[in-house]
Simulated scan of single mutants.
Amino acid sequence: MRKYLAYFVRNFDYPLFFTYVFLCLFGLVMIYSSSMMVSIVYEDGTPDYFYRKQLLNLVVAAFAFLIGAFFPYKHFSSKKLMKVLLFFTIFLFIWLLIDGYEAGGAKSWINLFGLTMFQPSEFAKLFIILYFAGAFYRKSLNNPMENLEPNNIVYPIIVWLVIILFVATETDLGAVMIISGIAVAVIAASGIQFKKFMKFFAVLAGFGSALIGLVLLVKGDEILTQNRLGRIKSFLNPFEYEGGSSYQIINGYIAIGSGGLEGVGLGQSIQKLGYLPEPQNDFIMAIISEELGILGVIIVLGGLGFIVFRALTIALKTKDPLARMISAGIASWIAVQSFINLGGLSGLIPLTGVTLPFISYGGTSILLLSFAMGILINVSMYVKLEKKKG
């Protein structure tokens, strides 16, 4: 144990760790600043309601991070564990279908025995990374990935489609896009030939489109609600619906435009005073822009960009296909989710209600992202050791 601890400290990826910690603490400060009015008006009357809850979330997330970082990453993709996690994931989604809670237009939350609210789609993001990476890695032991055909990995694709179907029935379209992006990234990092990768991509796109079509056919009225149609109209012409479906987007624009280069000052936002709904969640970057200006935005984007770049660098350096796929999957998770959040905020894409990694308020998100960061740091330590031996 002492020898392993010495190896752990010596090879620990400190730049990646401190960037992760900084983003979490920065997010905690901005959650307190952005949610003060919401806390007073809608919760228990104290301005630090969401701050205290997120602080507790971070304490729990710290333990998840340590587990991910301390135990060798190969354990998390073992065949036995993946079977258990597959049944657990399906169980969570069935629970959600039977007794789920709706928030933000999506039925995506379950109450874990009165202890906390949990979002199965967040768990599914991490599960798909580990499941795909482990399944493809085991296949490559007997048959190199470049020789694999789509019919050789039918089972993982079926699992992915089942997960997508469950998430689509929640009408959580943002999670569908993120999980799809993760699946494509892991397959691309597996070492498969480009032509065969394009076949995989075509198969995924075809089956995914068919599933989306089926869900729309069965639950079209629930998915294409006036709220969602309003988001599409708002995306096409936000200022035409500024008093209705574009209300949040327009106030987000006002917050961003008010910040300028240096911002109006920490805690001095006007839009958080009842104008911008739920500012501590998916629109927290608008408050950051208003209070800290472009410099605050650059700090957040720089931190997220560094984590994604570091993860991709780890994936490119390692000779272990399992480590490469896990790193690429985590990088794609953070990158795609950040793009969807910021794209909706800035008007590049329609709003989907996706949170900003490490920054927005949310217990399930920070818990699983922290566990993923622990695994990524464990992979980074392996790559350092691999480099020394090579």
Rank of each mutant, 00 (worst) to 15 (best):
L130R: 04
L86P: 03
L58F: 10
E122M: 08
F63S: 13
F70S: 12
F123W: 11
G45M: 04
G134V: 03
F132L: 14
P120L: 00
W109C: 15
L112Q: 12
F123G: 13
N57K: 08
I128H: 03
S121I: 00
A62F: 01
L92C: 10
K79Y: 06
K107E: 02
Y73P: 12
F93A: 14
I98S: 04
N57E: 07
V84R: 12
S77E: 08
N57T: 08
K107Y: 04
L66V: 15
M82P: 07
K83D: 11
F76S: 05
W95F: 15
L58C: 00
Q54Y: 03
N57H: 15
I110F: 07
I90A: 01
R52A: 01
F71N: 07
G105D: 15
S108T: 15
F76W: 15
D99R: 15
L130I: 07
F50P: 05
A64C: 15
I129W: 04
T116H: 05
K80R: 13
I94M: 02
M117S: 14
D44L: 11
L130E: 14
S121F: 05
S121H: 13
W95T: 03
L55M: 13
L97C: 11
A103H: 08
D48I: 10
E102T: 13
V60Y: 09
G134C: 10
D44E: 04
E43H: 14
L66S: 08
P72A: 02
K79T: 07
F65I: 01
F87I: 03
V60I: 07
L115E: 07
E43N: 06
P120V: 13
K53Y: 04
A124E: 06
L85S: 04
W95V: 09
F76I: 06
L66W: 11
